[in-house]
């Protein structure tokens, strides 16, 4: 994690206390949301376990010995949920799926790659898209299948693709 560039707020102790002042809290929330998403993106993680997250460096800055409380974590996750970046996987809210890009955005990214490589009207397998050699330098390389499917569904809704069993056809 040495190469992850933490934002300045991460070294600011009040960042780890949910601020009561509404205006201040709004700014704090923005900072937290973007930190969570960039961190997840950096570590290429598509899900988050709340129990695990409590001890992860994301919410615990050992250098200044500050830790975000469980309530605080939920406050931030609620905010992310409101913004459509996470989805709870269970009713007790222990596991969630994190999408640092929304499925629509992913759809666009994939489609622009497809167009750039002239692959319109061809069929790709899911494996090709996420694990194939041609996509290693793409952001969606290594993407989990559930998210890929969702992204492709949005393209399908726009009549830009047709999803099949294990593959997809782009138009």
């Amino acid at each position: 994690m040495a190469d992850f560039e933490w934002p300045w707020q991460y070294k600011f102790p009040p960042f780890f206390t949910i601020q009561p002042n509404l205006e201040t809290r709004k700014k704090q929330m923005e900072a937290w949301c973007s930190l969570v998403l960039t961190y997840q993106r950096h570590t290429k993680k598509y899900s988050l376990d709340v129990t695990e997250a409590q001890s992860s460096p994301l919410f615990h800055n050992k250098a200044i010995s500050r830790k975000l409380s469980l309530d605080g974590i939920y406050t931030i996750l609620d905010e992310l949920k409101k913004r459509g970046h996470i989805e709870w996987q269970d009713k007790v809210r222990k596991q969630c799926l994190v999408m640092w890009r929304t499925p629509e955005e992913w759809g666009k990214v994939i489609y622009s790659w497809v167009s750039a490589n002239g692959m319109n009207n061809t069929v790709c397998t899911f494996y090709e898209l996420t694990e194939g050699d041609s996509t290693t330098n793409q952001e969606f390389h290594g993407m989990e299948k559930w998210l890929l499917l969702r992204a492709l569904k949005t393209l399908e809704a726009q009549h830009k693709a047709a999803v099949m069993d294990e593959g997809v056809k782009f138009f």
Binding site: Q9, P13, P14, E23, T24, R66
Partner: peptide
């Protein structure tokens, strides 16, 4: 909005509101 708080075991500290 002048300051913001840091609740910690050692007590409640106030810092300059760098968020705003």
């Amino acid at each position: 909005g002048g300051v913001c708080r840091d609740e910690h075991i050692e007590g409640l500290r106030f810092y300059l509101n760098l968020f705003l």
